[in-house]
Write a protein that binds this DNA or RNA. Structure first.
Ligand SMILES: [Zn+2]
Ligand SMILES: [Zn+2]
Ligand SMILES: [Zn+2]
Ligand SMILES: [Zn+2]
Lengths: 146, 146
DNA sequence: CTTGAAGCTATAGTTGCTAGAGACATTAGA
DNA sequence: TCTAATGTCTCTAGCAACTATAGCTTCAAG
C-alpha cells in the first residue's frame, strides 16, 4: 500500500492532481489509513498510470473516462475504444496541420524583419494585417487545453 | 463610429470577447454614446484586428500586450518584438515536434489493433503501458491554453 | 519526544474566453 | 407614435485541467 506521495512519485503525477482525479471521479475513492490518509494498491497504481499515459498522448479527461470504463469490460467489442483513439489521432493531425501553417507565417515574419525600428518592423506590420500573410492560417479549430 | 456588435462583426471577434479585452486592459476603455453604449473608431478597429491576428498566430494575450505596447513606440528598436515572435516560433516548433511523436504512437496503436474484444485491444493495452511505445513522447512541455 | 515532512480539507487562481440573468437602449415596422 | 424585436449594459459563473494557498492533523526519524 502506497501513500499518495509515493504513488505520485511512482506514476509521475503530482499529489494534488491525484486528489483532483479522485474528486472528479476518475479515480475511485481511496482507502484510508487509521489517520485518514489515502492508501493505494496495485490496481489504483495501474489506473493512474493509464490515465497519465493517456494524458501524455493528449487524450482529454472525458475521453479517458470513457476508455477506463471500456477497459473494465474486457468481453465487449473494442470498436468504441478504437474510435476514441482514431478521433484523437485525427485531432492531433489537424493540430499539426494548423501549427505548420502558423510556423510558416512566423518564419516569414521573423526572416523578413531587417531589425531596425518598430516603425519598420515586419513582425509588427504583419501582425496588423493578415493580408500580408501567405497562407490562410485563421483558427479553423480549437486548440487543446493544457 | 461602430457599435460593439459591428466592430465584432468587422473583426471576426465575438462581442463578449471585446468586452473581455477591455476588462483586462488589452483594449482601452471605449468611448460611450449618450445611452452608455460603447463606440469605436478606426484606431480601436486596428488594435482589435492586431489582437485577433496575433491570437490566430498563437500568441498569448501576455505576449500581445507586450507587442501592442511596443507598437506604440515606433522609434524604438524592434529587437524585443522580434524576440517575442522568435519565441513564439520556437514554441510552435516544439509543439509540432511533440505532436508528431504523439501521432506516431497513436497510429501504431490504431493500426495494431485487430478489432476484437477489449481484453485483446491494442489501444487499451498500450495506454496501460508506456513501455509498449516506440518513442518517448512524454510531456516535455506544456501545451497552450486554448 | 520533538521536529519537520507529508497529509488532510477547502477555497481560489490560472488562460482565454463563453453563457446566463435581468435591466436599459435603439431601431424597424404597423 | 407605439410597440416589439434586437442590441447592449453589468455582473456573475462556468469550461479544461490542473496548481497554489491556508490552516490544520498525522506520521516518521532522530
Ligand atoms: Zn522587427
Ligand atoms: Zn495572417
Ligand atoms: Zn481495439
Ligand atoms: Zn507511451
Amino acid at each position: 500500500m502506497l501513500t499518495i506521495g509515493k504513488l505520485g512519485e511512482a506514476a509521475g503525477v503530482k499529489v494534488p492532481t491525484i486528489r483532483y482525479y479522485e474528486q472528479i471521479g476518475l479515480l475511485p475513492e481511496a482507502e484510508r489509513s487509521a489517520g485518514n490518509q489515502r492508501l493505494y494498491g496495485r490496481k489504483a497504481q495501474e489506473r493512474l498510470a493509464f490515465i497519465r499515459h493517456a494524458r501524455d498522448l493528449g487524450f482529454t479527461l472525458e475521453a479517458i473516462r470513457d476508455l477506463l470504463s471500456l477497459s473494465d469490460k474486457p468481453d465487449q467489442s473494442c470498436a468504441a475504444a478504437d474510435a476514441i483513439a482514431k478521433a484523437q489521432l485525427a485531432e492531433v493531425e489537424s493540430r499539426i496541420a494548423r501549427l505548420i501553417a502558423l510556423k510558416a507565417e512566423l518564419e516569414r515574419m521573423v526572416v523578413q524583419c531587417a531589425g531596425g525600428r518598430i516603425a519598420d518592423c515586419r513582425v509588427i506590420e504583419v501582425l496588423g494585417d493578415h493580408a500580408l500573410c501567405a497562407t490562410d492560417h485563421r483558427h479553423p479549430e480549437v486548440e487543446p487545453a493544457h
